[in-house]
Amino acid sequence: MLASVGSVFVDLLEEYRRATFFFESGDPLGASKLLEPIIEAEPHNTAVRQLLARAYFNSAQLKRAESQLRALIEHDPSDHYAHHVLGRTLERDGRFREALPHLRLAAAMKQHADYEDAVHRVEEWLGKP
């Protein structure tokens, strides 16, 4: 029994490594296909969920990215990166009013040029100073 559990863990870890390679090699769709069964087996694994959200975002599967990011934020409301990527996802989907609070929250939690640039960009879209 323990051997099979161990081999399942090794298989999931190996698939995660493959997915990371696919993602970093510019194949987010391929990465997402590898990550989906992992997140089913490990639904509380935030590293897998974050990479899956990024893979969905990079392959323009915005609704799926949004779902993964909202799950991350529900698990940890102080996750500035999840708020930022959710804001970017909503921005990319043309949902600027929904994006702005997440982008502002991320920028308030962590000073980062990308975070501030995203806030300014969406504020401009909305005609805010």
Results as ranks from 00 to 15, higher is better:
residue 118 A to W: 07
residue 84 H to K: 01
residue 33 K to M: 05
residue 126 L to H: 08
residue 16 Y to F: 15
residue 111 Q to Y: 10
residue 59 S to A: 05
residue 114 D to P: 08
residue 115 Y to H: 11
residue 7 S to A: 12
residue 17 R to C: 12
residue 127 G to I: 04
residue 77 P to T: 00
residue 64 R to K: 15
residue 71 A to V: 00
residue 105 L to P: 00
residue 30 G to W: 07
residue 66 E to P: 04
residue 15 E to F: 02
residue 46 T to R: 13
residue 68 Q to C: 11
residue 54 R to A: 12
residue 30 G to D: 07
residue 6 G to K: 12
residue 128 K to A: 11
residue 57 F to E: 00
residue 83 H to K: 00
residue 124 E to K: 13
residue 74 E to V: 01
residue 28 P to N: 06
residue 127 G to T: 01
residue 78 S to C: 00
residue 80 H to I: 00
residue 12 L to N: 12
residue 94 G to S: 14
residue 14 E to L: 09
residue 12 L to R: 14
residue 84 H to T: 01
residue 8 V to T: 13
residue 47 A to C: 07
residue 7 S to G: 02
residue 39 I to W: 01
residue 93 D to P: 01
residue 18 R to Y: 06
residue 15 E to D: 11
residue 4 S to Y: 06
residue 89 T to S: 11
residue 58 N to F: 00
residue 110 K to M: 14
residue 125 W to E: 13
residue 5 V to R: 09
residue 81 Y to W: 01
residue 121 R to A: 15
residue 96 F to A: 14
residue 115 Y to M: 15
residue 42 E to P: 02
residue 62 L to W: 12
residue 79 D to R: 00
residue 22 F to S: 08
residue 96 F to L: 05
residue 84 H to L: 07
residue 123 E to R: 10
residue 75 H to E: 06
residue 85 V to K: 04
residue 27 D to K: 07
residue 103 L to M: 08
residue 15 E to K: 15
residue 47 A to R: 15
residue 77 P to Q: 05
residue 44 H to Y: 10
residue 16 Y to L: 14
residue 32 S to E: 07
residue 90 L to C: 12
residue 94 G to K: 13
residue 94 G to M: 09
residue 55 A to L: 06
residue 8 V to I: 14
residue 51 L to G: 03
residue 72 L to H: 06
residue 59 S to L: 03
residue 112 H to P: 05
residue 110 K to N: 02
residue 40 E to D: 10
residue 93 D to G: 12
residue 32 S to P: 07
residue 5 V to N: 04
residue 78 S to G: 00
residue 42 E to G: 09
residue 101 P to R: 04
residue 115 Y to D: 09
